[in-house]
Design a binder for these strands. Structure first.
Lengths: 135, 135
DNA sequence: GTACACGTTAAAGTTCACTTGAAGTCAACG
DNA sequence: CGTTGACTTCAAGTGAACTTTAACGTGTAC
């Protein structure tokens, strides 16, 4: 089995070793086993870090991710309390989705201004999206 | 014309007055005109705040938003430098989009576990998304 | 055996996006 | 005229997510 050191994992995940230690410290990652004091990981950590990364990008806080991966997923607790949390988070995600989409259309509009009427086009785009005033 | 005070704007935008002062301070909002020392806004500010809000949600930093609304949109500068920035930001947005979508599908999968086999279902979902190990 | 790369912890520092607190200004009300 | 309430500025504080620093340990290479 490929035992990886902290910096190997960090390099592959695009993180710093300090970040991995920090994640472990706050309970987002399980305590890694030690080989003479040093952390050793196997490759499954990478998938887990990918999930954390995705969740981060999707606007979850580290705390929320810790709740998700430590409490909600592995616990067979029938408590409907986390259902509310997930429900709220799903709603948040869909508003986030629409915000990302409208932001993309704004940027695409601005990008499309490659004609000679650059200034005008940008100005129109700005007005369309409510960035410049309608003075 | 409806001249609004800072707290009226704040209430309507779902922000605190301190946030508006802060936005003005860092140049994200133009210096508001003063009526005997106090800021006065007209309703166009709300649209602008909405754009800022959308951009925030879409993962832009306040600094990036300031560049977008102050430099890129209103300037007829043909400098292709901001084109690169926008290009990068568009790419970021599409990866963000896919992250949001996969996060949503993860949460939806977890939510769907409302049968008697709750523990198993959650566990399967966790494995499917690489949250629990394949030990 | 000692130099060196890489690891460790604990504590303090950094950045971002605000918020809070102190001290003061201003207009309207009684 | 005084007090109330909403505003002002400026400085310091906050929380999240890390990073940096200092002092120390460990295994390999020469």
């Amino acid at each position: 089995m490929p035992e990886m050191t902290i910096s190997q994992v960090a390099r592959q995940a695009g993180l710093r070793p300090s970040t991995l230690r920090y994640y472990e410290e706050i309970g987002l990652l399980p305590t890694a086993r030690r080989r003479s004091g040093q952390r050793r990981y196997d490759s499954s950590i990478l998938q887990r870090l990918a999930v954390i990364h995705t969740a981060r990008q999707a606007g979850f806080t580290l705390n929320e991710i810790a709740i998700l991966v430590n409490d909600i997923i592995p616990n067979p607790s029938p408590s409907p309390q986390w259902r509310d949390l997930l429900e709220r988070k799903l709603i948040e995600l869909s508003t986030l989705l629409s915000h990302v989409q409208s932001m993309r259309s704004l940027l695409e509009d601005v990008m499309r201004c490659d004609d000679p009427e650059l200034a005008d086009c940008i100005y129109q785009t700005g007005r369309k999206h409510g960035i410049v005033g309608t003075d």
